[in-house]
């Protein structure tokens, strides 16, 4: 059985995010991202052409906010406001989704046909049971600490 996800090298992820955001992005392996009932996180699901889930990208609130701000060159305080208020504003979230969209590249190789960004959740509390089951069942994952120069750091996990 082919792997569901080819876990990418952290250097490759760092390079990819650096090109996308147009600034230095340091990436290192980190602790398992927290997705408990009291944790604030955002999540995007990647689906195959038949709409089966093939992967998930999870980001904590700080990283989701910093991704969104950095992509449009918004000032860092816009991201901080989202983090402080515990709610990611629409313009920032739209950008975070574009980062998720580009991250879909890591799930292409292990699947035939098109893999694309499917449902997304700005608030992890709303993530449905089938997505949680997929995350629990997965054995292929990488948990990362991502530091965006000029913005800040946060946690991300790619799960396949």
């Amino acid at each position: 059985m082919p792997p569901s996800f080819v876990v990418p090298d952290v250097k490759e992820i760092s390079k990819m995010l650096g090109i996308l955001l147009g600034r230095e992005v340091k990436v290192a392996k980190g602790d398992r991202i927290r997705t408990g009932a009291r944790d604030k996180y955002t999540l995007g699901v990647f689906v195959a052409e038949n709409q089966d889930i093939v992967g998930v990208c999870v980001t904590d609130f700080p990283l989701a906010s910093n991704f969104g701000a950095a992509l449009s060159l918004f000032p860092p305080h816009k991201a901080k406001k989202c983090i402080d208020e515990g709610e990611i504003e629409a313009t920032i979230w739209e950008n975070t989704l574009e980062v998720y969209n580009v991250v879909s590249r890591y799930f292409h190789d292990a699947h035939e046909g098109m893999v694309q960004l499917g449902p997304t959740w700005r608030d992890g509390e709303q993530v449905p049971v089938e997505v949680r089951k997929f995350m629990r069942a997965s054995t292929d994952r990488v948990d990362l600490i991502v530091n965006i120069n000029g913005y800040g750091h946060g946690a991300m996990a790619l799960i396949g």
Partner: peptide, 26 residues
């Protein structure tokens, strides 16, 4: 596009695309 696999490049070419630039781009 974020779709940059060889399979999708071929699909694009067969449909008449002149090129495919993969995101992120420089």
């Amino acid at each position: 596009t974020a779709q940059g696999s060889p399979e999708m490049r071929e699909k694009a070419r067969l449909a008449g695309a002149n090129f495919l630039i993969s995101k992120p781009f420089t």
